[in-house]
Structures are given as structure tokens and as C-alpha cells.
Write a protein that binds this DNA or RNA. Sequence first.
DNA 1: TTTATATAATTAGCCTCCTAACTATCAGGC
DNA 2: GCCTGATAGTTAGGAGGCTAATTATATAAA
Lengths: 185, 185
Amino acid sequence: MAHLIPKNLPRYECLQEASQRFPDLDPSAMVAYLHLLRAGTDCLEFSHEYLSAHGVSSGRFTVLMLLLQGQACGEKAEVVTPAELADMAGCTRATMTGLIDTLERDSLVKRVPDSKDRRMMTVSLTAKGTTLLTKMLPGHFKRLARLMACLSESERKTLVRLLGKVSSQAATISGETPVAGCAEC
Amino acid sequence: MAHLIPKNLPRYECLQEASQRFPDLDPSAMVAYLHLLRAGTDCLEFSHEYLSAHGVSSGRFTVLMLLLQGQACGEKAEVVTPAELADMAGCTRATMTGLIDTLERDSLVKRVPDSKDRRMMTVSLTAKGTTLLTKMLPGHFKRLARLMACLSESERKTLVRLLGKVSSQAATISGETPVAGCAEC
DNA sequence: TTTATATAATTAGCCTCCTAACTATCAGGC
DNA sequence: GCCTGATAGTTAGGAGGCTAATTATATAAA
């Protein structure tokens, strides 16, 4: 489940040494990048520990949360289709089909064919799914609160701001040219 | 390849509203957590774009880099075993076997049986593997430098410091009790 | 010497992600 | 009324994670 990110990040001196061989290597950028991947993986693993104890994988949990949100914060969409779920979760429709398959097999969600458009399905939480979520959410939230208790409110704000910069920079660079910066190949 | 993290993070007001229903939910902790996962996924995706254009997945790249490092920064270990690679990469030995299988199939690495202990293998880069790496690394480094160009040196330091706090907090909490904070189940 | 235990690597089987191809349905133009 | 094309969902096949079991070898103890 981890992302195969090196456990021990290289020392800064080693990166500086490597930057002699590779002039394009920016040591402090690399350090920031590696720490970001490392921390992200750690957080994912941290959640996974708790979620898997309840028989729910990270992906399945995301789907359940999206359904709960559509049910609770239901301003616009009462019904949710697999395609919408895939969009919201950031995965392909094929992946969503697989997730819904296993969730439905475990009776946590149910598919209902749309009455108007017979191509479409509607997905919703079952009572069992709702119960499971409401039973496990408090513990999950407690753990996340503890995880972030190491940061003050202002540190959290700073972190979110810096991460936001990185995310939008990634989107910007990716957007401009497919695999840019690769003139030499 | 992404980790099925919601693309659009919930608005802060929505989290505050939800925290009425779930008193354990700490909105600012949740925001920090979600942004961290989001940014980590974005970075991973960003690298993946470039690496996959060269036919190398994230996991395979990690293995190649570990081998290159063992070759270059070779202070201690000249030879590397699959078990050591698995430890360094943070995956299981079984996973490493699979990765080496495909890397070897593509002639990027080679296995050599150890002469002393016949249970062991040593893994090393082939000429083709080394060539591929040295060809693609400059572009990869350039992209990462551009990605992090959105942060000043002091922002990078701050980011690394805050991420380090989160990582070690995760390790601390995970270490103390297997799936703690779950008294209610 | 033989037997028990530990270790290195692999294998087998599962889950989750992907892309590409397929099926069924809808909607628009002739 | 029919083609054409778009769209919703699924299926097929692959890659990369995992755990648990297997095989081969080494080591220690009886």
C-alpha cells in the first residue's frame, strides 16, 4: 500500500555531492520534494492502519465519504452516479466500477438503475454502510487530530499555504506542455 | 496510479458544519491532512508523467536510483541484495522480487548469485540501466527544480521542518499502540 | 551426525490502480 | 423511421502493492 518511497532520505551533503555530477539537481528542491512524498506516504499509512482495522481500504473509504457527503451536505446532488464519483475521487470510471463492486458485495452501498436514462446507475449508502461510517469516523477524526496536534494553528496555515503553492505549480507545469523540459530526448 | 484522494477538497465551512455532527473532527487538522495528501499525490503524479514517458514506473525508478547510489556514493556496500533493496525502498521482499523481475526482463538490472552464501543474490545495474538513468536524470531534476521554484529557500526550510514534524508524529502515534484511539470498538 | 531453527528469495493469490475495448442506450440529422 | 456519434457503465488484461506459504541454504544444538 505504501508508495515505495525510500525510507531513509539521502543526507544533504550527499545531494550536494551528487549535484556536482548533475548540474540540474537542486539539492534543496530535492529535499523538499522527498520530504513531501515521505510525509504524504506516512499520513496515508497512518490512516490506512486505522481504516484497514475496519476492513476498509483507503479508496473504499473515499467512496463512502463522498456518498455520505452527498447525503449530508446535500445541497445539489441527491443522487450520485459512478461517473460523478470517479470524477470526485480522481480515478477512472473503470476503477470506480471495481470499487463499487466490492462495496456492493459487502452490502455497504447499493446500485439502483436510473428510471429516466437506462444507461445510468445511482449509487447510495446502505444502512449498513452508514452505520459502519458513523461508527468508525469518530476514531478516525481523533487520530487525525492527534496527528496534526504537533502543529500549531499558525503552522497549519503555513503548511497549507506552502502545499497549495506546490500543488498549483504542479498543475501549471503539467498543463503547459505534455512532459515539458525534456528537450534533450 | 494516483491514490484516490478527492480532487476537490471540502470547503472549510463545510468542515465546520460537519464538526457539529462529529465533535472529534478538528477542521484545521483535517484541512492540513487533506492538503498534505493532495500535494503528495500531485507530486507523485508530476514525477510519474516524466518517468512513465521513459517507460519507468515510480517503484522501478526508486530501485534504479538505489542501485545507482550504491554504485556512486559507494562508501560501504558495493554489492546490494534484494533484501537490502526492499529495506531501503520500504517495500516487502516479495514486491522487490517482482520489481527486479520486470527490471531484469527489460535488461536494466541483472542478478548475480552470491559466491559465498548460495541463498543470496546480488543485484546491479546493467550498462543499459546506467545509460537510461543518466539520460533521463537531468530532465527529471530540472522538472523537480521547476516544481519547487514556487518556494523560496526559507519556505522550503519551513516546509521540510513542518513535514518532518508530521512524519515523526505519525511514527510516534503508530509506535505506541497498534491502532490506538479506538477504545470504542 | 542429525535435527531444529533462522534466513534469502521466490511463488501463489488477492486488491487496487490503470488503459483500451466493448455493450447498451440516448440524441440529432437525413 | 434510421444512421451516426456521444455517453454510461462494464469487461479484459496488465502492473505494482500486499500477506502467507514454499524452497533452498546456512547455522546452531543435541
